[in-house]
């Protein structure tokens, strides 16, 4: 078996809502190998967002173990989680979530700032990343001057700029038209072929099936 970049071992994540315990994830064990292109699929409320938050180091499990690139996230404080995200995870969101007041280039430079990279190198690497996603000539534009597809490309450049172990995308085509969505999927596919581990969270079967492998979640458990 290939080396696991993501490894979930009997992961449970419970929330207390009023008098109820919501079992968002209820004993999930999953391995995703280095260089895989995986879709986590499931209807809304299935627990796939919870799983994405755990993989993205935004959250820690109630019980069980989450290993990201060999590091156990259990019991980590917020600062340590932030440090882990900064090195290991590149996020791509459905609503792009670019910072509005700064240029595309500055958006892409921001993760490097948080990772402690010096200003000259930040600029260089951000330019490379934007070039990689095909936005060399839009670097100085602000997000509101870009189309949806271009925004998502900036977001992908921002996600890959720090060379993370995992590229984690949450419904990345959800806010795009079909044609632009296909182009974005192509970009993910290309990035995967370059050796990047891509995890895509979606409820869209078509998008999910475009990935190499699928993990289906329902009611907090992995479907066989």
């Amino acid at each position: 078996m290939a080396i696991s970049v993501i490894s979930l071992r009997d992961v449970r994540r419970y929330y207390i809502v009023g008098d109820f315990i919501v079992r968002a994830l209820d004993g999930v064990s999953v391995d995703i190998g280095k260089g895989d292109f995986t879709a986590i699929m499931g209807p809304s409320g299935s627990g796939k967002s919870t799983m994405m938050n755990l993989i993205g180091c935004l959250d820690t499990p109630t019980s069980g173990k989450v290993f990201i690139d060999g590091e156990d996230t259990a019991g980590l404080e917020e600062d340590d989680l932030a440090f882990l995200r900064s090195r290991k995870i590149g996020f791509v969101f459905q609503q792009f979530n670019l910072l509005g007041r700064i240029s595309a280039l500055e958006n892409v430079m921001t993760p490097l700032l948080y990772a402690g990279v010096g200003p000259r190198e930040r600029r260089l690497r951000a330019k490379d990343a934007l070039e990689r996603v095909g936005l060399k000539d839009r670097m100085m534009h602000r997000p509101n001057e870009l189309s949806g597809g271009q925004k998502q490309r900036v977001a992908i450049a921002r996600a890959i700029v720090n060379n993370p172990s995992i590229l984690l995308a949450d419904e990345p085509t959800g806010a795009l038209d079909t044609k632009t969505g296909e182009q974005i999927m192509e970009l993910f596919s290309d990035l995967n072929k370059e050796g990047r581990t891509v995890v895509l969270v979606t409820h869209n079967v078509e998008i999910g099936m475009a990935c190499q492998q699928q993990i289906r979640i329902r009611d907090g458990k992995v479907e066989a």
Binding site: L58, D79, F83, R85, S86, F91, L98, T110, P111, A159
Partner: peptide, 14 residues
Amino acid sequence: EIGVRKAIGASPSI
């Protein structure tokens, strides 16, 4: 914006 910044690696102190 704060959520996004945190997701892309900003620690609470940042």
